[in-house]
Amino acid sequence: MPGDSRRVRGPEESQSPLLYAVPAQLPVGRTGRGAGEPRAVFVRAGLLSHAAGSAYIEAGGTKVLCAVSGPREWGGAGGERRGRLLCDLRWAPFSRAGAWSSSAASSRQAGLLLQESLEASLRLERYPRAELAVWALVLEDRGSALPAAVSCASLALADAGVEMYDLVVGAGLSRGAEGEELRLDPDDSEEEAGATMYLSLLPALNQVSGLLCSGEWEGDTSVAAVRMCMEGCQRLYPVLQQSLVKATKRKIPAPQPQSG
C-alpha cells in the first residue's frame, strides 16, 4: 500500500504506551476450544463483480479478501510455454493490533510465500504466454492470516475457472514455551508467544505445497506439528468445497440436457 504522506507520525522519540504496560498474565491453557480445534470459519466465493474470481474468508477475527484477474497477456521470457503467477498479499493499515505501520518488506516476502504455495496446484502449462494475478488483502489480522490468505486465494482461483490439480488449504500452528502443547489455528496472542508453523496442503493429492516454521523444535515435535497441521487442513477442506459448489451454481446456469 502506498505510504500515507499526510500522516503526522509524531516526534522521533515517541514511544507507544503499550511498551510500559504490565503484561497481563495469560491463562496457561486455551479457553473456549480444544488445542486441536480450529476456529469457526465462514467462507464465500464469487462476491466481487469486476474480478474474474474472488473469495472471502473469516476465521475467528481474521478477515481476508482475495481477487484474481487473468489470464492476461504477458510477454513471456524467452519462449516460455508456461504461464506466470503473480501474488500480492497486503495488510490493511488498520488490520494489526498496535501502531500503524506500512511494512512493505514483509508483504513482499508474504507474496512470495503465497506464490510458492499456490504454484504447485495450478496447471500453468495450459496458459502459455499468459499471466494470472492474485491480490489478497488482510482486512483484520487476529492470528493465522497467512494460512487464511492461502485458502482464500486458492478458492478465488477456482472461482475464476483457472485449471488446477487441487484446492490448496492452509493451516497454522503455534507452541508456547518449551514443552507446552501444540495449538492449531492460533489467535494473535498465541502466535506471538512462541514458535509458529504454517503449512499448506493439497488435500485430494495429499501433497504439501508450502511449509514455514520458526522457533525451536526439539526432537520429534516438528513431525507432530506437521501432522497436526495436515489434520487441520483436512478438516477445513469440506467447507471450502461446499462454498465453491454454491458459488458455481449461483454463477453458472446448469447445462440443459440435449438430445440428438
Binding site: S121, A158, E163, M164, Y165, D166, L167, L202, P203, A204, L205, Q241, L244, V245, T248, K249, A254, P255, P257, Q258, S259
Partner: peptide
C-alpha cells in the same frame, strides 16, 4: 446422450 441431472464438482 447427456447424463442428467448434471452434478457440480470442484478441482481435485
Amino acid at each position: 446422450v447427456l447424463m442428467a441431472p448434471a452434478r457440480c464438482c470442484v478441482p481435485g
